[in-house]
Amino acid sequence: MRQYRLGRVRDQLKALGYGGIVIFDPVNLRYATGSRNMQVFMLRNPGRYVFIPTEGPITLFDFPNCEHLSEGLETIDEVRPAITLSYVASGENLYDNAKEWAKEIADLMAQHAGSNKKLAVDYIPSVGAVELAKQGIDVRDGQEPIEHARSIKNKQEIEAMKISVRTAEEGMIRMQQALEPGITENELWSYLHQVNIAQGGDYVETRLLNSGNRTNPWFQECSDKVINEGELVAFDTDMNGPFGFFTDISRTFLCGDSEPSNEQKRLYQTAYEQIQYNIDLLKPGMTFREYAEKSWQIPDEFFPNRYFTVAHGTGLSGEYPYIVYPQDFEEKGYDGVIQENMVLSVESYIGSPGGKEGVKLEEQLLVTKDGVENFSDFPFEHRLLK
């Protein structure tokens, strides 16, 4: 799996004519090398990065005294101490450190890329970009090659992703068993985290679990609200599980033994119809625009509160591509082709502006040569489908 990923990155660099790439984003770094270290910490502290030449040995720059973490990884040829390009780590020495950092990267480019000065960087502190330019380096955006590399999975990635999904499903079962009137949103949410950590997962990216009137609009964070009898409980896993793979599945539960209201059924059945329609539509060879235009037409009532994508890529996080609603395509969309071995999460949020509740549903799917394979068989809420 590591060799496949590294090869994907290098193929993209070659296609774009780049001499190499510097990767700061810890998720991208893990993808390209299989190496991880304090991943959440590194999301805001640029203290770990890797230089990957299009051809030649790979140099990882790691946090102090962490060289041992990459022992045995065939994707890493050399480990050097990182220069952390942040004010908190450097103080008044930040600009001097940035000069030293840029010179070291420029030397590696000269050694392994020769006269090619085109260097991709996924994310970079501003002082680093300025100093690289002074070194004569032509800095290019590194997100394009990384995202395109990550978008196509191989057999090993697919199998690892299924393990992450099974882990999330176990957490969801625990949540469903624990859901009863009187539990708080935070307490219920903790079951997913506990199962994930116990099975070797990493973290949950968001706090998207809401109940009752907090289910509308979407994107309200989990709280200490007490969940009451008869309320809807909507959540999105957004879970980085075992092997770092992202499980992105959404469900909406009904709390307690009460019969659901007709309005709750209407909302749920509308969301269910949307994702089933869009799942059946999905196949390789379609363009993003074609998929958007042919996708389920959301009623005007629910359009203002729509989810921001119809579908999006899933891998080590939410990934390329984002496929938006046809009404949003000219402003926010971009085209491309849905390909075999992409993994896409198909989304639905149904809730009226000012409505009492809303429903969130989502499935995670492998694009196959014949259509799709659903990674999850977690059941829907039968009481809301009757």
Rank of each mutant, 00 (worst) to 15 (best):
D377V: 06
G333C: 06
V121D: 01
V22F: 04
Y49R: 02
T84C: 10
Q194K: 15
G20L: 09
P53W: 13
A110H: 15
V324Y: 08
D224V: 07
G313N: 02
K386P: 07
C66Q: 12
Q274T: 04
Q199L: 12
G244K: 04
N45T: 12
L254Q: 07
I173V: 15
A178L: 04
I152E: 07
E331D: 14
P81I: 14
D328E: 12
G336H: 06
L43E: 12
L16A: 04
D377Q: 15
Q177E: 12
G56N: 07
V359Y: 14
R8N: 00
L69C: 03
N65R: 09
K155P: 01
I173S: 10
D335A: 10
I163K: 15
L85K: 09
N28C: 09
S223E: 05
N28T: 00
F51G: 06
V79K: 11
P326D: 04
N65L: 10
F51M: 07
Q274N: 08
D62S: 14
N210Y: 06
H68S: 08
P304Q: 04
S190Q: 09
K99N: 11
C222T: 15
P379H: 05
Y307D: 00
F235H: 08
G56F: 02
E347W: 04
C66H: 14
R5G: 00
P321K: 00
L361T: 04
P81K: 15
R80Y: 03
S211D: 05
F329T: 07
V346Y: 03
S223R: 11
L29W: 06
F288Q: 01
G182S: 04
D328I: 07
N210S: 15
D238Q: 04
E131K: 14
D138L: 11
A32M: 01
P26C: 01
E92R: 10
N341F: 01
E205T: 08
G230T: 15
G7F: 00
G72K: 09
R44K: 15
E185K: 03
F41W: 14
H148L: 13
G7W: 03
T206Y: 03
A198N: 13
V79Y: 00
A98R: 01
S223N: 10
M286S: 04
P26H: 02
E157D: 14
A113R: 02
S376D: 11
E362L: 10
S261L: 05
L132F: 02
V226R: 12
E92D: 15
F51V: 12
E92L: 11
T215Y: 13
S126P: 00
D257W: 01
Y268N: 14
R80A: 08
P299T: 02
E205Q: 12
N28K: 01
S348D: 05
G19Q: 12
G351S: 05
P46H: 09
Y325W: 14
E180L: 03
D248W: 11
D141Q: 08
L361W: 06
I105V: 15
G336I: 09
V337C: 03
V233M: 14
L267C: 06
G351V: 01
V127I: 13
A271M: 05
E131V: 12
T33C: 01
F246E: 00
G351H: 10
S223F: 11
I323V: 09
K103Y: 12
E293T: 08
H382I: 03
V79Q: 03
I163P: 00
V346C: 08
I58N: 01
G200L: 05
G230A: 02
I137F: 07
K360D: 06
A120T: 10
A160H: 11
S35A: 13
V372M: 02
I275G: 01
T368I: 02
Q264W: 09
